[in-house]
Design a protein around this nucleic acid. Structure first.
Lengths: 236, 236, 236, 236
DNA sequence: AATGAATGAGAGTTCATTCAT
DNA sequence: AATGAATGAACTCTCATTCAT
């Protein structure tokens, strides 16, 4: 069955000009990325365990064995995937947060804006975190990698931003750690849940923007320094 | 039941199709619950795919074959598990939200309080949602079930609460849908992420309480009706 | 081997009466031995590495998966094979040597006689040692097993016999350890080499007898206490 | 293209058949020997099947593909190895035996002495036979080669030596064939078994010498012409 | 002469599921 | 109601071999 298909694929040079006998030899340097791209899509669509190396190979137009020329094992592909997607992005977000001066809410607004843009440009931007949360429970290495590359970089940067904001009086003094989680929590939840549970597909791309706007509105008021009119109780 | 059958009949073969045509095999008695208890523990500890039917049978002190007397397939066990764990809880939360009169923030405070209590009593309370989020991508049935049993019940109730709060002037008027997500987002994110990524284990049980307190504080101010001093821009 | 043959002679369905709908359900207790018998033949014919589990399963009239109900891995089959064949035999040989009184050459004659008889009765008697020597170099566990079960039992018993013979003046005093090896060396070499290298197949069964006779003749004189006429030099 | 396909369909049985019909590929020069040296080391250390062509190529500082410029297949390498190692040695031993005049025991002493020297000089001297005995069962070609190159040369020479010794009255008349095996059996057994089963590693290099001395002592007396005092029975 | 990317045919092993008892 | 022997279809991974360059 398979090699019958393979046989047919021999003739796929038909539309190609016969001037050169070369079948379209793709550059081998591109191979790892092609494998990773395919794997990402498959992992997201079916989950890591349900995806076979054979499928990945087919998607990357390679033989099963060839995949193992580039990655030592199937888990290794997952790891490489996370590593590729996560590092630069976390670095960028963290440095953005660190460099900001002034009201943290403005920094957050800008950050969310940038992230939205990136998400529209690069499909995998939104995919990889979802993959991570799905697979991390059964793959300690993925969890560790994400911990080291993202959480350890972004969370402290965000907490530092908030701390500076509190110190300068831009926002009210609260538990910094927990505040950080309240700030990004809705976005994380949206990222992780919206597609899996198919939450309100009708609004499409706009949805993320609306969520960000609402969250920023709440935060602006919610984090603003107490005013004399406030009579809302804190934790009792 | 009917739509469950419809769902299952999709699943990869017809493992479920028989269930209805099966002779009355004493489905739901003491034995099934023992199987589900064992399965829950194993799924949580190792994930669905890494858990074998053999292990479940051993844990329930049954033979492998006997498990198939009570459940048509392995995915079916997962489904029953989710169904059992999720329904009552969602129902309770939704009715709590619906019955509340007055400031929604107080309702949320009470709801969060109740949930925290439950989480302390029942370990699996916090774990089942994580199991769901982990398995949903590879199991449309689980996603559907969660959608039907939880999201379809709790989210509208929460939105209704907020809508009533806005109408009564307790909270400011915002996009109701997105506000609901901002309200529960941090809790969802915490639930899903904290254990997997081992976020700050040092603070232990208190952590959840601190998160809730911080979130409520932010929401109280963030959702409060605009006062004359406010000059923070909404979405531009 | 023998009872395997008996099993195989079971007319699978052909001559069986159709009176019972039961296919001939073989007793599962016999399964491990059937697998081992088949594996022994295959390992000897093709070597351990060239033999597939599939082949073993086919030979034992089982599915590939069923083999793993009885043995944890392919190497485990090899090990069980050696274990099954080797223990009792070594015990018997050793106790025979230990119980003997008087001239060691007579004990050897009897031992060789018994071994020859056994070899004629049980085909696998001669096969297993060959399997061991073939596979031990790539399987430390097999080597270890053989060391523990055979060498550690038989060699000391043989050395003890010789030592007693020297002490009583039946045989001349020589390096006991090396003498033991000279005594059994030709037999070992024959066992290991004759079939592989197809040495003189024409003489068949008689060959082993002739070798034993010649070796005993040489040993009788070679080990006899020095006589006055001897002028042969020892090691210089 | 066509004949490649044809080749593959056969494989496993005719890898050798091609070797002779191949275009003159510059078989035996410097490179082949480097490959064989590396292969020998690896085969001895890991066995034939556990050694990959990749490893051989790396060891010979060549690409995997280049190995196939010099050898038609992996089994072909083993064959060439045996051929190279075995021929000259057997020739030397045989001619030594043939040229000897007088008491065969003296010839054997000298032969054993020479072999011991060689074994000390060249580590692989003792190892190649072990490789052969290990691989011969799964490789008829290796067995055949060893039969042709060693057994067919050395055994007749040894038998001839013994025959001449019997004729001249130096040793007693016995079954020549079996006597030859009794003479070299202990040495063969030692060669094949001692390292695999790790027999008495404490005595180290001396061990071989002690075995030879003991064996020669036994043979000198055991093969000596009958004296009047002898009353030991031959085969009954 | 030499490379190394690529192949493809299995290998051992696992496991959900079935079925005679 | 319950068993457990048996199956068979996958799965991951390996490696001898080929071929365009």
């Amino acid at each position: 069955m398979e090699h019958a298909t393979a046989d047919n694929s021999k003739h796929r040079a038909d539309s190609k000009a016969k001037t050169t006998s070369k079948p379209p030899r793709r550059r081998p340097e591109a191979r790892p990325d092609e494998i990773l791209d395919t794997a990402l899509d498959l992992f997201l669509a079916q989950g890591f365990h349900r995806t076979t190396v054979e499928q990945i190979a087919r998607g990357a137009k390679l033989s099963k064995g060839a995949v193992y020329l580039y990655f030592a094992s199937k888990p290794d592909i997952l790891l490489a995937l996370v590593r590729r997607a996560v590092g630069a992005m976390a670095e960028r977000a963290a440095s953005h947060l660190r460099q900001h001066q002034g009201d943290p809410c403005l920094a957050l607004r800008e950050l969310f804006h940038v992230l939205t843009k990136l998400a529209q440009q690069d499909q995998s931007f939104a995919k990889v975190p979802r993959l991570i949360i799905h697979e991390a429970p059964s793959s300690p290495e993925v969890a560790q990698l994400y911990r080291d590359e993202v959480i350890a970089k972004v969370l402290p940067a965000l907490m530092d931003l908030l701390e500076r904001g509190m110190h300068a009086g831009h926002i009210r003094r609260l538990d910094v750690d927990m505040t950080a989680r309240c700030v990004i929590g809705p976005l994380m939840a949206h990222l992780l849940l919206s597609e899996v549970f198919d939450l309100r597909p009708q609004s499409g791309e706009l949805e993320l923007q609306r969520l960000i706007d609402t969250q920023l509105t709440i935060l602006s008021a919610g984090l603003a320094p107490r005013q004399e009119g406030d009579h809302v109780s804190g934790p009792h």
